[in-house]
Nucleic acid binder design. Sequence first.
DNA 1: CGCAATATTATGCGATTTCGTCATAACACT
DNA 2: AGTGTTATGACGAAATCGCATAATATTGCG
Lengths: 301, 301
Amino acid sequence: MNIRQLEVLRTLLATGSTIAAAKTMGLSQSGVSRLLQQLEEDLSMSLFVRDKGRLLPTPEAQILALDAENILLAVDRMSSRAEDLRSGAAGPEIVRIGLPSSMWEHFAPAMLADYIRDFPGVRIETFFETTTSINKLVEQRVIDFGFLRMEGESGPGVEIERVATGESVCVVPKDHPLVELEEITVKNLRDVPLILIGRQRPNRMALDQSFRRAGVKQLVKIETHTNSSACSYVAHGLGVTIISSFYANLYRHLPVVYRPFVPRTTQEFGLARAVGMPLSIAAHALSDAFKRQVEISQKDQ
Amino acid sequence: MNIRQLEVLRTLLATGSTIAAAKTMGLSQSGVSRLLQQLEEDLSMSLFVRDKGRLLPTPEAQILALDAENILLAVDRMSSRAEDLRSGAAGPEIVRIGLPSSMWEHFAPAMLADYIRDFPGVRIETFFETTTSINKLVEQRVIDFGFLRMEGESGPGVEIERVATGESVCVVPKDHPLVELEEITVKNLRDVPLILIGRQRPNRMALDQSFRRAGVKQLVKIETHTNSSACSYVAHGLGVTIISSFYANLYRHLPVVYRPFVPRTTQEFGLARAVGMPLSIAAHALSDAFKRQVEISQKDQ
DNA sequence: CGCAATATTATGCGATTTCGTCATAACACT
DNA sequence: AGTGTTATGACGAAATCGCATAATATTGCG
């Protein structure tokens, strides 16, 4: 097996023909054809069926292409890391950080503004991803560290330092009748339009469980995948949502308020980084800036 | 960059010398040395310092080795996935096949017994249906492929590979007077109780036509809808039936014999599958098993 | 100390294999 | 006939790999 062959597989699947693949890969059609044949021989299985002169990918090819993509990504990472190392001493230092998608709007800009005051020369790369993606990115050392919800099941090569906690709260529009309540229970949400996040995440499952146990049917109006969008929907009166107070605190500028949600549950959030890989000074400083920003966002009620 | 080179990096870091690395990798010392030089050239950085004739890894090498390990792991994953795919053992792969109802009793079990010997991990779903239903199931991609009588009018998205032929035969009980005849004509069937199949199928219409043309009135005792039940009725002396020799061959264990029926007509049977949708390896293997079974059932007279 | 023995990596050489292109064949579709 | 596709034979360029051997360092021994 061969990196070149994997590239052919990917490109062929993307373009659909050897000619187009050859064009995008910058080699001849016959070259592509040969590379493909080699790969098929190496794996001793046929990846495409030749049908009326066309190449049709087999289901196996589609599956293997996912693995191939993984390999190619890893190769890219290694190349770019080599690049970094080569120019390392001379070039601009770079810090890579993973954040939940919800933070792109206010949190990240504020943190970076704080940071670059002290480290104007450092280049920063931000990845906005989900908890699981960030975990993976840390494990593969694509990013120096990442912020994520602690859910127990983090990879073996990852260690997490807790930096924040939160409890489940119900976010409602500022002028919503529910604002009157001291705390909001499942029963209070009967027939209230809900905006829910992250189908099939463990947190969401627990929430579904609570509704079932209380015999309340969820009136799910919207499903979304970021805390920020959920709060934004709430602000526009589209319904109410249930998120962690940690995130709710990030959106205090919106015309929404939150109340504790019972049954109470707590969440922990932490900074994850690869074990056995000390942070660079610049990265360490960025993690400090991150913690300061958390402090600010959570402190003044 | 090259997978082989990465293996060298890993092994070299693990063993500490080109000779030991060569031994564990199964190639010559010079080969290892060369591979290492290539990698260093590709990355345009030196991974080892040559100190007093020994190779000492640079910190960069250690860092990059982690990435290399990632790549090699991904490669291994892909290889083993290919292995699984090849043997059809990957996950709960499922193959769906459509068969004529007549085959449920002996043919399908024998075929599957043959198949699962080689593909124990594959789940199989069988649909016993009529030719037209199977056609539809193939067209809608509910099933991977199906066996059916070729009647000319198959859907546009369906292509059929002929795998068997048959001719009309008259199936009679073993001790029936008609057994004496070399072949059986319409006239021989005057006043003989008939067991017929599939009202309103084109084949049946042609048969009715023959009787009308010969001026023979059919003495239809039983109408049924599967070849197997028709033969079973014959075996119990309830009458004679006219089916394709292909099916008659499947019921040779019954106390019945068959004779060519004139006017002679031939039938073709084939495997239908959706065009533009290659079969998975597991599905392909099942179609092979099917053909083998057809071979067996039709061969020894 | 001198010197051979034994490590190590590097390299010239040559046979073999692979890589990639060109030209062209073979086929299907329009 | 014209266009689009994949496959393949021929061929030169390049890479692969083992062998033998060079260059160097370490070690052991008298």
